[in-house]
Nucleic acid binder design. Structure first.
Lengths: 336, 336
DNA sequence: CTGAAAGCGCTAACAA
DNA sequence: TTGTTAGCGCTTTCAG
């Protein structure tokens, strides 16, 4: 339906090669023929088919990004940062939410066949698939996922610092007099959470106090799950001194339920989250701020280096995070 | 670099047509040749090039979505709903944030040249460009933007109900005793906001009371701007009885600043938002819930009907919204 | 400065 | 059941 390069060529009385040259401003074309072609193109509202162009050039001018989901602020922010840089670099962005899909690898492979390179968030795709893609020449950057380094491939990665901030967070809680700390989250599901859990354990272990830490595994990092965890604890009467939650949504859910049950926060129990989403500020939630947008932006830049070939050696970036203390942990009346 | 259909054909000792047939499970192929081809494909890790396929089939199996930005929950939710349905329909999703770009039309045209159809949010693209795209055969669905209906083209649209909810919201405030109502937002920038503003005016006008309404125009619907508006009002001492904000972020910023200045909410002034984002719940913000995800999902379904050709007559959907009353407007001590 | 022609990787008649 | 061949819309030598 849309007009093709041939329509324009016929209309302007030139060959398709000339039209191509004019459209991409490559090669020399006499000004008046150029004008004729431009006029014809305008009249026919001709826009070169990206498809034809891509096939001929064997480049897509598009990047992909694979994430689990777009609910909650974290992924959206990462995608946003990614899109912004990609747009600057004149590349389209393809998105793929693996969600609960059973076979993400099929969709990911198909995405890889549509773009010059892609970013993979967290554990959305099995290591093996990522390695195969990379081995087949796909440009891949991992975000919030530990580097993959085999002898055959080295794959770029970008993460936010987790362990150090987790240690700092735990030390803050210990300093507030907390002794029994509960970590809420599933360390197996995300590398980030795993590191946070380790950091908390490290801090407690080295605190040379009688502090102890317990893991409360959950199957999703949502407000609803947070509420359930809190409700159960309130019912059984077994509250720890502090809940360290794997993300803000979990913490916010917990917090809402604790307040509903009239549990004093932070008087009776402290609560912390992770990410510093907007709602965290309004809830007074102590949390760790991580540069979500910058994660995406950095990934886009690394990917571009790979695509343009300006760098071949793999890089692993770690972006700084920041502890944000608010009222859910402070001030705390130290237990007698 | 990746292997092509010819590599597989050679490897399996068949023609490329047979490989094509096997890969797409079309046409009849003898089981043993099929197996040979599959084996060859697996060995070479062959994935059909989407590009070649698309060019030959003249379909992209991809949809686009154009939005202003991904910051804030609203757009992210719409995109999420869109992606979910698109994935179900086995279509890739291209995103384009126009952001502050000066010439979105170029980027949009180029996106249109990469997909079978696209969704345009709000006023990201001028009417004329949308009409031209549609006239050139592009499938287009508008979201949160008034329908475009010329005699030549009729373009699908999906919106959330605005005016009725705005009336209901204003009546609620009047019922709480508010007389001087201030609407915060720029009606010119978004059709949604325009309708909300009209609804509030309607309600006040028909209240047969001495109520009045004033417009406070702002240049962005962000927390920061909300804070500025509140700070200025506090400084000048000219507080209305209620702030009706064009979205939640504006309202949350306002609220935070009012509380910081020790202004009693809702005692001295009521505050309302729009969208019911997560933070609204934690801030106790009265707001209007709109089905953001469903907006995206509906758009994706409408678009699919256009692409498959199962419908040719334009449709305009309006999704219901819901007033959510929380503590920023209720209970209110009625003025003496 | 311009045109003819050979692909890019695939699908889809049409033959065999 | 399988192979041959002509495109899909564009870029890009290579001649002229």
């Amino acid at each position: 339906m849309p007009s093709t390069i041939r329509d324009v060529a016929r209309h302007a009385g030139v060959s398709i090669a000339t039209v191509s040259r004019v459209m991409r401003a490559s090669g020399d074309v006499r000004p008046d023929t150029r004008d004729r072609v431009m006029a014809a193109a305008a009249e026919l509202r001709y826009t070169p088919s990206q498809l034809g162009r891509q096939l001929a050039e064997r480049r897509y001018a598009a990047n992909g990004i694979v994430f689990p989901d777009l609910s909650g602020p974290y992924y959206a922010e990462v995608v946003l940062g990614y899109e912004a840089v990609a747009a600057e670099l004149r590349r389209s962005v393809l998105i793929l939410a693996t969600h609960g899909r059973e076979h993400p690898e099929v969709a990911v492979r198909e995405m890889a066949g549509r773009c010059d390179g892609l970013v993979v968030l967290q554990r959305t795709v099995p290591d093996q698939v990522v390695e195969e893609l990379a081995a087949d020449g796909a440009r891949v950057v991992l975000v919030a996922r530990p580097p993959i380094d085999t002898d055959s491939v080295g794959i770029d990665s970008v993460s936010a610092e987790n362990r150090g901030a987790a240690v700092e967070l735990a030390e803050h809680l210990l300093g507030q007099g907390c002794r029994r700390i509960a970590f809420v989250g599933d360390p197996d599901v995300s590398p980030d959470v795993q590191e946070r859990w380790r950091g908390v354990q490290d801090a407690v272990r080295e605190s040379s106090s009688d502090a102890e830490v317990e893991l409360i595994p959950v199957d999703a990092l949502t407000e609803e799950v947070g509420q359930r965890v809190a409700a159960e604890a309130v019912r059984s009467g077994e509250l720890p001194d502090a809940y360290v939650c794997a993300n803000d949504e979990l913490a916010l859910g917990l917090l809402a339920e604790l307040r509903r049950a009239d549990v004093d926060v932070p008087g009776r129990v402290c609560v912390t989250g992770w990410d510093d989403v907007m709602a965290a500020r309004y809830a007074g939630l102590t949390t760790v701020r991580q540069p979500m947008r910058e994660l995406g932006a950095t990934a886009a830049r690394l990917l571009d280096e790979l695509i343009t070939g300006s760098r071949t050696h793999p890089r692993h970036e770690v972006l700084p995070t920041e502890l944000v203390v608010r009222t859910t942990t402070h001030p705390r009346k130290v237990a007698p």
